[in-house]
Amino acid sequence: MKILGVSMVSKEEILEGLAKAVIDGDEVKSEELAKKSLEIGIDPYESLMNGCNKGMAKVSDLYELKEMFVPEILLSADAMYAAIDILKPHLKVDASAKKPAKVVIGVAQGDIHDIGKNLVKMMLEVAGFIMIDVGKDVPVDTFVKKTIEEDADIVAISALMTTSMMYMEPVIKKLKENFVKAKVVVGGAPINNDFANKIGADGYGKDAVEAVKVSKKLVGV
């Protein structure tokens, strides 16, 4: 069966294959399928949404169910980004589309542990946010400056160490002093809901999946 010149069977096969390659963390396969999708004329946006992102959504479910762990997720991310690198140059920019929300994300001052931050970044990216990654061991002022510069909607700060969680509150205070409206989401091993409330954060995610839910809620998507 052919509609608009694209073979339906192979299109479905490719999208499903892309999702599976992402779930399996098979970057060779995902790259191959992304190329194939362009060859047979599948809209790259569709490959992205119904292939890569669909796979990553499943990965996020499996992570929440504790059936996938960090090694598996990292390989899934590798596979996803391998496909995105191929698809991205061919994506058409839709000028009429609603501007996606922007997140400045980084690890608090004094902390170099960024696995958690990177997982959150990736899952937010998949959820449609534009991510501005300011890295690890990020000084308070850098968070504030970047948020203003980028006119970000959300600032996401993570910390693994009890020494670094203390640098979250100053970011929130300085944002307020500068009348920045961006919402602040915090997370990381020593953080809990009480602490997030105490320092005046707008949201807390106990893991990457929750961070996405909270962020979506904060920007109303």
């Binding site: 960090v70 090694p71 990292l74 390989l75 542990h113 696995i115 990177n118």
Partner: peptide, 11 residues
């Protein structure tokens, strides 16, 4: 490096 090591757990 920890993310490299994580990948080694599988690869």
């Amino acid at each position: 490096e920890v993310t490299t090591l994580m990948r080694w757990f599988i690869r």
